[in-house]
Design a protein around this nucleic acid. Structure first.
Lengths: 350, 350
DNA sequence: CGATGTTGTGACAACGATGTCTAATCGTTA
DNA sequence: TAACGATTAGACATCGTTGTCACAACATCG
């Protein structure tokens, strides 16, 4: 053996350098490197330079995981986000707004899709907890969220979005589903409709139930016999909605206006109306806005939600909790908005 | 003092339990707990039970970060994904496909949006590296990706999507942009068009250049004087595209067919056509499919990309690299597909 | 001039887990 | 019954970093 290979010499080709490598190269102690990397005071400018030079030369980068292991508070600067699907436009807008609000604090976002699977919800929560996220933002799917009570009582910041959790008292940010749906009902009534149908999503989904309740109650307040309102529930995709709409529209004494409680259902209703050439004769209002709604023939009136506001508010609440806010849990309601575009303003035809 | 408080006694209310707490409660050594939690052999069934019981009682959960710190290989089971925007439908479908392919291996995905900002690209890559992700999937924005060469040569798995990287030799998964655009050109030619306009995105984007090249070259092959083809570049949003289309369509000797190289541009073109009541007289093909394209009047013919295939393939390549695949870097091309819906089949009007 | 800060720095333990190694226990076998 | 391998379990060092503390060097004060 001729040369003793220094144990802390960086092999630039493969091994990732650590603080020791930087310290050795700069000729300082490892704690000094730590101080420089974390912008802590108490390092002379000369030393600082040397450390910075060394770390650049080695292309060194701080290991956050190792750091947060030791650091008091143990923050990882990452949070977990659980959505119905990251590919769902409503969800991904929330995701985007959250990301923007959290990026300012250097917080990274783990995102995952639930696909309506309660087991997956639990598994993903566990996976994120194992990675020691600083907080969780989730759309609840499972029948109850009580399984996170242990974590929640350990002060894990948690904000539910779109739907309120069951079996646990935690913050939530939701759309005013009932109010929005009622607004649609009132709109139809104001335009002279009395035969109004409701096309709804699966009733095990809280938002779907709320929208139905708000809609029907408003009709009731106006004096309509709510028991005679044609209601089709359990529609979870375009095709089932299309068939349900076709059935309603071809029955005897068909409705003159249709409210659809969700995007895919709206699309299905639109297809049915188009097939029957009724698009310009039967009124339609959909819950949730969508791209190109204004380019349809006729343009589609909707109750628009504000995903960007939901996301921003959820981020704010989460950050507040992370910063130690101990307020009692609350549900925050983001108002929806009726956007008139034409389809909702069609009057009943004689 | 009456009672000595055990240092490792869990305060279930606040402190997260560690292996020591579990070990103490189960009356075993900490390494035994580790063995049980990791399903390692060499633990008797009786001990196993005791440990499992204790860990359930304390609601213990393994700390992956601490584990991977010591573990050989140091995998964190998380990867970083950089997209133009998580709210962009094309991007979020890729995201979803990636997630599905990686979830099977228990890999979590950090997702972030770039917003066409090269600085953000570098910052986010650094942020993910600091979290020691096992790999990176990214849409390159910056003029060059050479800044990741140090990491790449340390064998950090990396796959570029949608666009090929510049200044570094790494895997990429892209759409056959030129071929797809050429297919649109051929389609127009086959339907008798000779006055064909091109509406393009910013030319600093590789995919935009490729689409233009493919389109123009195909027209050239058919004998058209390519220098006379009306080309409008630099369109990055709906409004600029709408204005460009209006200008083209109201000029002297207007085109009888329009190709738009991107979704927002397609929307802008659709609006212009509608305003001029030319939707059914001027042919239109858009690059990239979109929701409700088949519900438009007329339905819109598109060159569809396959984001789900791009995502799946990117995940496959990333996993292969993570598993040690040392093949030379390659670019994988996912074919696009022409979907005829009506707008692209309109023949030139006399 | 000695006592007293003030700075700058590094040694050391610790964070929560795993890799290595050694030891105790047990059942088998010669 | 002594010797042996197989099985089970724990002690200890370690991963890369930060918190704590001690200490040297130097400036400041009565």
């Amino acid at each position: 053996m001729t040369t003793m290979s220094n144990r802390y010499q960086a092999d630039p080709a493969k091994n990732r350098p650590t603080m020791r490598h930087v310290a050795a190269l700069a000729g300082v102690g490892i704690k000094t490197v730590s101080r420089v990397m974390n912008d802590e005071p108490g390092v002379s400018e000369a030393t600082r330079r040397r450390v910075l030079d060394a770390s650049q030369q080695l292309n060194y980068q701080l290991d956050m995981a190792a750091g947060s292991l030791r650091r008091t508070g143990r923050q990882t600067l990452s949070i977990g986000l659980l959505l119905p699907s990251v590919a769902n436009p409503f969800s991904s807008e929330i995701h985007r707004a959250l990301e923007d609000a959290l990026a300012a604090r250097g917080i990274a976002v783990f995102a995952a899709s639930l696909d309506d699977d309660p087991e997956r919800e639990k598994a993903l929560v566990a996976a994120f907890l194992g990675r020691r996220v600083d907080g969780l933002v989730l759309t609840p799917i499972a029948r109850s969220q009580s399984y996170v009570i242990p974590e929640h009582s350990r002060d894990l910041p948690m904000v539910f979005i779109d739907r309120e959790p069951v079996g646990i008292d935690a913050d939530a940010v939701v759309t005013d589903n009932a109010v929005g749906a009622a607004r649609a009902a009132a709109h139809f009534l104001a335009h002279g409709h009395t035969k109004i149908a409701f096309l709804g999503d699966r009733t095990d989904i809280q938002t779907a139930r709320e929208r139905r309740r708000g809609f029907i109650e408003e009709l009731g307040r106006a004096g309509l016999a709510t028991s005679t309102v044609p209601v089709r529930d359990g529609l979870h995709d375009e095709e089932s909605a299309r068939l349900a709409a076709l059935e309603l529209l071809t029955a005897e004494d068909p409705p003159t206006a249709i409210f659809s409680s969700q995007n895919l259902v709206t699309f299905g209703a639109m297809r049915a109306l188009k097939e029957l050439a009724l698009s310009k004769r039967v009124a339609l209002i959909g819950f949730d806005d969508f791209t190109l709604a204004d380019m349809m023939e006729p343009a589609v009136t909707v109750i628009a939600q504000h995903p960007e506001r939901i996301g921003r508010l959820a981020a704010e609440r989460l950050l507040a909790r992370i910063d130690g806010d101990k307020q009692p849990a609350r549900t925050y309601v983001v108002p929806s908005e009726l956007i008139q575009r034409g389809s909702g303003e069609i009057r009943p035809q004689s």
